[in-house]
Design a protein around this nucleic acid. Sequence first.
RNA 1: GGGCAAUUAGCUCAGUGGUUAGAGCGCUUCGUUGACAUCGAAGAGGCCACUGGUCCGAUUCCAGUAUUGCCCACCA
Length: 703
Amino acid sequence: MSNSFDKPYNPKDVEEKIYEFWEKSGYFAPEAHQPQAGNPNNDKTFTITVPPPNITGSLHLGHALNATIQDILIRKKRMEGYKTLWLPGTDHAGIATQNVVEKDLKKQGISRHDLGKEKFLEKIWEWKEKYGHIILNQFKKLGASMDWSRTRFTMDSGYQEAVKKVFLHYHEKGWMYKAERIVNWCSRCATSLSDLELEYKEIESSLYYIKYPLKDGSGFVIVATTRPETMLGDSAVAVNPKDEKYKPLVGKTLILPIVNREIPIVADFAIDATFGTGAVKVTPAHDFIDAEIGERNKLEIHKIIGQNGRMVPEAGAICEGLKISKCREKVIEKLKELGLLEKEEPYKHNVAVCYRCDTIIEPLPSLQWFLKMDNLAKMAIDEVKSGRIKFHPQKWEGVYLNWLENVKDWCVSRQIWWGHKVPIEGEEDVLDTWFSSALWPFATLGWSSSAEATADKPDSNDFKEFYPTQILSTARDIINLWVTRMIFSGVEFTGKKPFSDVIIHATILTKDGKRMSKSLGTGIDPMTLIEKYGADATRFGLIWQAMGGQDIHWAEEHVMAGKKFCNKIWNATRFVLKQIADCELRITEPQIENQNLTEADKQILEKLKNAKESVSKQTDAFEFGQALHDLYDFFWRDFCDIYIEENKKQNSLPAGRHGGKEILLYVLASSIKLLHPFMPFITEEIWQNLPVENKKALIIESW
RNA sequence: GGGCAAUUAGCUCAGUGGUUAGAGCGCUUCGUUGACAUCGAAGAGGCCACUGGUCCGAUUCCAGUAUUGCCCACCA
């Protein structure tokens, strides 16, 4: 390693070189593990499988924070003598990726249908090669000590085998079933979506009051609706059974306007008597609540909207083929003609939209695969309630449990092209992307593979050796999408929890507390920060702000502070090296009882001991920000401002002292070790320049 | 509608039942020959959101209010 200890510290001279050094030396792989004499951790493994980023784009600050957290844990455990594995990879991300590639093609005026399925999938694989690579490189720039030889993708052939095995297992158990049910349908993506894949958007629309004539000619019942066009599929009008106003009418028959179908007035507790007129039109085919009312009251189902978002023949001749919005106009026009539109009020409400393309979701009946959730949810609940899996901070257990306790069966089939095929003959559907992500902690370790290992089918010894993993660190918004499902999958298929501790890291917001988002232009690219300040400074800035799991209102000045801290460490090292240049010192632990020690010596050794304890404790408790603050204070205040200054004075005394030099070197070297998990590049570079016996690399030095 | 957080220096945030409440950045003044001006020394700047309660004592514990943010639900 070269030597130029110039001022100031320049990360560009160091980072790339150091990363290459680590990679070439093979230190990231568990195979590099060497037992440390007398270390009780020698036989223990420590594994993290990285949450695989979607191949839809590049990493954002949240990924950078999460990767830094995991790297800190892995590096510390590695130094503590554990056999560590941090497994990298990426996720195929079904709909998200399909949509991104479609958009990309659209720029050239091509649709996926122009290409056909096979060619389109080729395009997606090309995309994956390109972006998967970019993402993994970004992890490298950040200093992530991942074992690249074990990189996985959720569509690797070994992984596909695992998905198939899991699906068939559920099917044999009778938990995987096919049924025609009302589902969330995105007409643009032409696929079903789970509830978790929806977003809600407030829109300004109208509340229409429509008169439904009683068959006996005795008057009307007025219903209020935001969706008049769905009246074409009505099979009843419902009122609350306790609603005195309508009690006499329950059981009577109405004539559905335009359609002229006879429909009953039914009583159902789901109706809120205080909203609108207290009477609700019921369209079992196109509304979730109406579907339930329909089931309870054994109502007919009239499907009037097709999967392409247009009206089907059953909607009637005047509306057939129309888009939903056009049909609405038509129905309103017709009702006006008939004198049955009582009034129209402006009304604000939420509509569900597709989380990937923003199209309004249409609930409609469709034949889909469902996974029965009752048993699986119970298992997942039990793992957390029993304390076998712990969330940090603990409050997130509430989010997790609340969702599982109310969960409905999971619609796992998707009518898109990119994804794992539903195994079973003749199926064109693919699986929800989360169905495969759910297997990540064990499918990546070769759980499904046979004894014979190939490049594509990883050695199943990994599964034996590294599963269960220890830590899952992720973002709060995928607790239900992902964490719940990994936990029940792990227990169901391996009989073991997939990890023991779930870290829910801080969400990074803009300075004004808004969500960071690419589309709003409020996102910050971690690579820009690395370019500007260096990776260690970027990691410092991220972790400095990660206090107690609270949201981070992003403030770049902390990254600048990180850069200054790097410079401080660098220059303190220059000073120490200069002091010891004329002696043959080696790093040795000074005896605190040694009578030659000055008061200042004793104090700095005591403070070093405290800093070490505090950093260990805080890191093990996942309080990374606190750990870094403590280290910073120790190094800058106690070591540089106080001890080094004191040391200068002592050295200028005529008698001189040599003991001070030993301690200088010892405290510096110890600090460098403690700082390494947080700021790996600069510390490794410095280590390579210190007089160490049998020097290898700081990354594998003992903590 | 239900839930969870937050509210402390100009900004981003720590912290504590008990004399003078801290850090980073910013600001002011001074200091360049020896690790570092990406620095050092000194300093200004806070009714710790509001109201009430517990207590000898509350920024800290409790209750309520206000504001902000996030999550869940999705009322036609």
